[in-house]
């Protein structure tokens, strides 16, 4: 039996208006970023609030690409990919254990993981600095990878656990009855089904690490190990801010995130929802 639902045109218009408003609200800062990046320096202040600049230029991009920016960019890529890969690997292993095994102290460990999420980062910056300095890892990208991995593991673990919870244990048991070892069952049956979850976790950690400023600022001071958010600050000098180049750099920095999300988006939408609701 099919039913024809007649939608009132007013409601449809209202729905689109709401979506349109949301899109403008969310995307306007990005538009502004790109707009200023493309505006010649001379016009930035004189045409301050005009929606469209009267002239366009790619000088800012050219200038940015000739600066140290590519170095920052590479550093950020190394740190973000490293942290994302490390976190996802560890979180997947931990999440699997939480989801599948009963062991002593499980509740305590989960509670501890939650507690770590309750403190503001500012509180632990000093001790972290001390530890990293003591290890002689200041100004190294490794320190950032380790710190980001450590900070993202708890949330990523819960995320992965919920994905594993969504995969019926029957499947693994069936695989073991079919002749798999537990590890084979994990690799051949559970892993392919967790790809959306792995994608979501990777994306989450990647963006978090890509845009992190606080720790990068504290732990890195040498120009050649700066990550992109720290590098961006070099456009701010004591007496002036080079807005055009800063925005051009910002625009370029969006590219990897965008590419990454285009790549995993397919899994992400499926993943973020399938973990929450059993379907």
């Amino acid at each position: 039996m099919s039913m024809i639902v007649r939608r009132s045109p007013l409601r449809t218009a209202g729905k689109y208006a709401a979506i349109g408003f949301y899109l403008i609200f969310a995307l306007f800062p990005i538009y502004w970023l790109i707009k200023i990046a493309l505006t010649p320096d001379a016009l930035i202040y004189t045409e301050g609030t005009r929606m469209l600049p009267s002239a366009l230029t790619f000088d800012n991009f050219a200038a940015v690409l000739q600066s140290d920016f590519l170095g920052y960019f590479t550093n950020s890529l190394i740190v973000s990919l490293g942290a994302a890969a490390g976190t996802t690997l560890i979180a997947a292993a931990a999440g699997y254990c939480f989801s599948r095994f009963r062991f002593a102290g499980k509740r305590a460990i989960i509670a501890l993981l939650l507690v770590t999420q309750m403190f503001p980062l500012l509180m632990i910056i000093a001790p972290i600095y001390k530890i990293v300095a003591g290890l002689g890892l200041l100004n190294s990208l490794v320190s950032l990878i380790v710190v980001y991995t450590a900070f993202n593991i708890p949330f990523a673990t819960f995320l992965m656990q919920s994905f594993f919870d969504g995969i019926p244990e029957d499947l693994e048991e069936a695989a073991m009855m079919d002749g798999c070892t537990r590890f084979q069952a994990l690799r051949k049956v559970v892993f392919p089904l967790t790809l959306p979850g792995l994608g979501a976790t990777l994306g989450f950690v990647f963006t978090a690490a890509w845009s992190e400023l606080l720790f990068a600022l504290m732990l890195i001071s040498r120009n050649d190990s700066m990550t992109f958010p720290v590098g961006l600050l070099t456009f701010v000098s004591k007496f002036s801010v080079d807005w055009g180049q800063m925005m051009a750099a910002g625009t370029l920095a969006l590219i990897p995130s965008c590419l990454f999300f285009i790549f995993i988006q397919r899994y992400l939408v499926q993943g973020l929802t399938s973990g929450a609701v059993k379907g």
């Binding site: 048991e173 009855m177 002749g179 798999c180 089904l193």
Partner: peptide, 29 residues
């Protein structure tokens, strides 16, 4: 271990591997 007992089991939920075709499911062992 289950794999060494040489026993097959049919589950209430069927427990078919969702990412494999029917043919691969059947031939998985």
């Amino acid at each position: 271990r289950p794999r060494d007992r040489d026993i097959a089991m049919v589950f209430q939920s069927y427990a078919l591997y969702p990412h494999m075709t029917v043919g691969r499911n059947m031939g998985f062992s």
